[in-house]
Nucleic acid binder design. Sequence first.
DNA 1: AGGCAGGTTCTTA
DNA 2: TAAGAACCTGCC
Length: 275
Amino acid sequence: MVSGRIVDDFNLDKIADSGQCFRWEKQSDGAYSIIHLDKRLKILKVGQEYELSCTMDDYKNIWYTYFDFDTKYSKIRQLIDRNNDRFMYNAVTYGKGIRILRQDTWEMLISFIISQRKNIPAIKSSIEKLSRLCGTRHIDETDNTEYYSIPTPEQILKTSVNDLNACGLGYRVDYIKSVAKEVYDGKLDIKSLENMSYEQSLYRLKQLYGVGDKVANCVILFGLHNLDAFPIDIWIQRILENEYNGENNYPFEKYRPYNGVFQQYMYAYYRNRGD
DNA sequence: AGGCAGGTTCTTA
DNA sequence: TAAGAACCTGCC
């Protein structure tokens, strides 16, 4: 167990609701259960302090990085021009506390392929079913709970299409199998994406069957942690149209190299504002 | 009950 | 090159 204060922007509910992570579950005691690679963390806010169900070693080596505590989001927020970009000012005021997690690239690839034309509960459900079906099983010894990792490419390939179809993946099964095969065959080296420029990684990801502009940018932002990647989904599209008079008038230069962070603020604000 | 969901591919001109 | 249809499935 590790506990302490976290001063910079950090709001669990807002991160959980931001649409970047699909394996956060709020428990009845108010803690979030988070599955990341082969680890599971429970994190609970008590007053101004956080309690984390991990060893100090795991905190330092895994979770500190996962939560991206090296990046000062309070500083990034200062880039906004509150007089000339009122919408962004409101969005950031609303979304303060959001961070961009450093998630696993392979998990992001699978998750966002699944996400297309689905709502968030359906995405979570499919990912959970897929993990239970063919991911590696673990036991969290702090509370004797079992949990499952996202399946590796090999684990997906060893699973029959019939079984995969039970995960509610629909037509995305073909996409997932195809991507798994490319990694397994060595045609796609996930690790090598990390050393590429934005353009190179975007190009490579979009070559994959079932990966278009939106999914690729999500992988780059949430997996490769390139904070300038700017995924445009239906909500962001509406924002660009309604609040900025079209994509061509959005001030990308002003928010470089953090366009992806501001994208998250806008997304959270606009979705919860109810229009 | 039936439209719609954090898109992408395929088809057509 | 660009628009429009088709796509599986399960939430709300």
